[in-house]
Write a protein that binds this DNA or RNA. Structure first.
Length: 163
DNA sequence: AAAGTGATCATG
DNA sequence: ATGATCACTTTG
């Protein structure tokens, strides 16, 4: 049972404490434990990019679990998401923070992630590792930066932080 | 508190 | 073709 087969909110919680291993072209590996995630859960979630259906950009969200969804926000920052759940069901987990880098834009800078990883599978340049570590506590809170979503969706506790 | 930044998507 | 809108970060 892979974590990424779970529905996004469950996957987001389960990913906190896991380790991301980024392998660069020159062979160096950067490892970072995930400390903060957010879930984006299907077309019915008005905060999810796919809430207005399939477009060229959101197409990746409909791919199989384990696909990377990387996109540019505010012209500056790359956002790293892991697609979860069944194919053709657009769900993803945003990596908002790792040890050594807090904030989604910083995570990608830290791990040297950009558009070239979009629509590739986990296990290539970027891999997920489970070393058995479990955070003492995982807190749930509302997602940030989604003021455009419905009040109902803004209230969902789909942001998970290691405690 | 506010600006900087550019791909993407919906208009015309 | 142009314009609005951002899953943010930094600076003051």
């Amino acid at each position: 049972m892979n974590i990424l087969d779970l529905p996004a909110p469950e996957a987001a919680r389960a990913l906190v404490g896991k380790v991301l291993a980024r392998r660069l072209a020159d062979g160096t590996v950067i490892r970072a434990r995930i400390t903060e995630t957010e879930a984006y859960f299907g077309e019915a979630d008005t905060a999810c990019h796919a809430c207005h259906g399939r477009t060229k950009r959101t197409e990746v969200l409909y791919h199989r679990a384990g696909t990377l969804y990387v996109y540019l926000c505010y012209g500056i920052h790359w956002m790293l998401n892991l697609v979860t759940g069944p194919a053709d069901d657009p769900q993803a987990v945003l990596i908002r923070g790792v040890e050594g880098a807090s904030g989604p834009g910083r995570v990608t800078k830290y791990l040297h992630i950009d558009k070239s990883l979009n629509d590739t599978l986990l296990g290539g340049g970027l891999a997920l590792e489970d070393d058995g570590y479990e955070p003492e506590r995982i807190d749930a809170s509302p997602r940030v930066g989604i003021g455009y979503a419905s009040a109902e969706d803004q209230a969902r506790l789909w942001r998970f932080t290691a405690g």
